[in-house]
């Protein structure tokens, strides 16, 4: 659970981020959100801390247990390093850091989800992998305004599932290290 102090800290963060959020990012998010009202969509789901997130299945290249990677000195702390994926060198982003979560305990298992982006494949580090689920568009709701800023800036919106909320990650935005 978060302490009070951290809550306040995040509030400050949000103000900064909202001012700085590029216009095109907002637009892109709206565009994808609209499209979502047509058919059921499939999401590959995963967990980050206690949160349930998903990426659209067609954006997922592969999933595996995270392997050793080469750190990139002096780069943004969100960049966990580089991995060799069958001859391609792929940048790895620690999604916990990217979305403003606390670092995972070092002994915890780490999974890799390689997603396709316009800048080539990007490897995202997550905690646990869930099922591939199909969601109805009518369950979709755009990001609640009170959502933590870094998280809000990287998701399309939220699916209100029966027993939980699924945060629909926008892979383009999430793999952009700002």
């Amino acid at each position: 659970m978060l302490t009070e102090g951290e809550e306040i800290g995040r509030g400050e963060d949000r103000r900064e981020m909202d001012v700085g959020a590029p216009e095109d990012q907002k637009n892109r998010r709206v565009a994808t959100a609209d499209r979502r009202h047509e058919n059921n969509r499939q999401y590959a789901t995963f967990f980050l801390d206690t949160h349930y997130l998903g990426v659209e299945v067609e954006n997922v290249q592969e999933v595996f247990t995270a392997k050793a990677m080469t750190p990139v000195p002096l780069s943004d702390p969100m960049i966990a390093g580089l991995i060799n994926l069958r001859g391609h060198i792929i940048m790895t982003i620690d999604l916990r850091r990217r979305l403003g979560f606390d670092d995972r305990p070092p002994e915890d298992e780490v999974m890799s989800i390689v997603v396709r982006t316009s800048d080539g494949p990007v490897n995202l580090l997550v905690d646990r992998i869930g099922d591939v689920i199909e969601v109805r568009p009518d369950l979709f709701e755009s990001s609640p305004p009170t959502l933590e800023s870094r998280l809000k800036a990287s998701i399309d919106g939220v699916y209100k599932l029966e027993d939980s909320l699924l945060l629909a990650l926008n892979t383009e935005l999430a793999s952009e290290v700002i």
Binding site: P73, L74, G87, I89
Partner: peptide, 18 residues
């Protein structure tokens, strides 16, 4: 091997290899 666009700013880095 070429690097991700997002790593191009690191001046000490010329690329990566396997």
């Amino acid at each position: 091997k070429p690097l991700s666009r997002q790593l191009k700013d690191l001046s000490y880095l010329a690329g990566a290899t396997i």
